[in-house]
Design a protein around this nucleic acid. Sequence first.
RNA 1: GGAAGGGUGGCAGAGUGGUUGAAUGCACCGGUCUUGAAAACCGGCGUAGGUUAAUAGCCUACCCAGGGUUCAAAUCCCUGCCCUUCCGCCA
Length: 428
Amino acid sequence: MLDPKLIRGNLEEVATGLAKRGFQLDVELLRALEEERKAIQIKTENLQSERNSRSKNIGKAKAAGEDIAPLLKEVDQLKQDLANAEAELHQVQHKLDDYLSGVPNIPAAEVPEGVSEDDNVEVRRWGSPREFDFEVKDHVDLGADLGGLDFETASKITGARFAVMRGDIARMHRALIQFMLDTHLSEHGYQEVNVPYIVNADSLFGTGQLPKFAEDLFKIADDERDFFLIPTAEVPVTNLLRDELLDKDASLPLKFVAHTPCFRSEAGSHGRDTRGMIRQHQFEKVELVQFVRPDESDEALESLTANAEAILQKLGLPYRTVILCGGDIGFSAAKTYDIEVWVPSQDKYREISSCSNFRDFQARRLKARYRDPETGKPVLLHTLNGSGLAIGRTLLAVLENYQQADGSVLVPEVLQPYMGGTTKIGGV
RNA sequence: GGAAGGGUGGCAGAGUGGUUGAAUGCACCGGUCUUGAAAACCGGCGUAGGUUAAUAGCCUACCCAGGGUUCAAAUCCCUGCCCUUCCGCCA
């Protein structure tokens, strides 16, 4: 959520900022609603004030043993007027809230102009794609030949966009999780958390998935409760601080790492990436989340992104990092770097991590604050998160980049300790 | 699933219809005292919204949430959520 005061006082500037991401702010609607709100609120509060003072007088009169009947008569009309005014005020406020909760974050100044992912700008590249002297297989064929990746059985058990992993591939999948967690823990200073995979609507509102993106989520069928499967650990982890006010001596930044499954309905993605592990309804992810002071979030995004990139470097996987253009940036984000890993079978880089600075956009929805040691006043935190990394896509990248002519796959050195010293999957 | 008891400020914990945004203690901030610290004493100390040039005043809201009763609700009624204890079941 944007700061209502900012919008009120800088309508045109806000509209211009949002235009960069292709969002057209309804300036006229906001101006009208705001004008209405102001008038009704003042009226309502005046009536409330009058009710309060009259009620106090009645109390005093009664205590003094006076006849209060005439006083009650006086206040009769007031009661009705107040009820009307309050109802009217609620209505306007709901209209404003409904509209504002659907307004996305303003892109940062350095976010490039553009309308689609084609306009994203590469900021750096690491490693160089390997030259293969044989015909590369994609991970689906590799996995099938190795007997460790099975999409047919998964579709029997559940349906499309699920996978069964077996043997060394399942083990490598688990090894990747452990390796990433350990690296972020011991080298990057994150604290491990284990969180619920089912969340309520308030949590999803806090991080921005609701109210606009309900169709991307799996909702649990339950008459009594509004529960959803998490689309990313960002939701439960960022909501750790919902409705919290950190003590002024709280140590910031707070850096959390969590491993969770993620569930996405992939509505609107029909026909895209239907083959293989790229786009599944269920996948696992190691997620990085930071809560920082407002003046430190720009720098925090750089280090968080570097933390995610470090995983790819240790795994020896070539990648590039792009900054998302205005048209491609997510609803809640002010600035996002995507990290894209080299996928040999597709001869291109594919997203494996998305690292974003949300500034105070999520924190305002969440009411996640800390007490400024200088002023003693509550201040909204800045939130950031990024995949560090998506496990399925990392597995896919390892399989394809480390494949050998005989169909076997070498195990990256850093994973070997997590696989009982195994150096190769398949082959002889 | 059955039974009972609870949700009040950063924390603990009073308060059952009226001048209570809320006693008291702890914590915290400022001051006095002290060589310094502690103790003691004095003062301050919630959040959000509105108005405003103002982080000055003033007004409003908030005692889990949402409704209701009333001139007036932390206090009474209803619904929901959450927590605790006991029993049952269960990984």
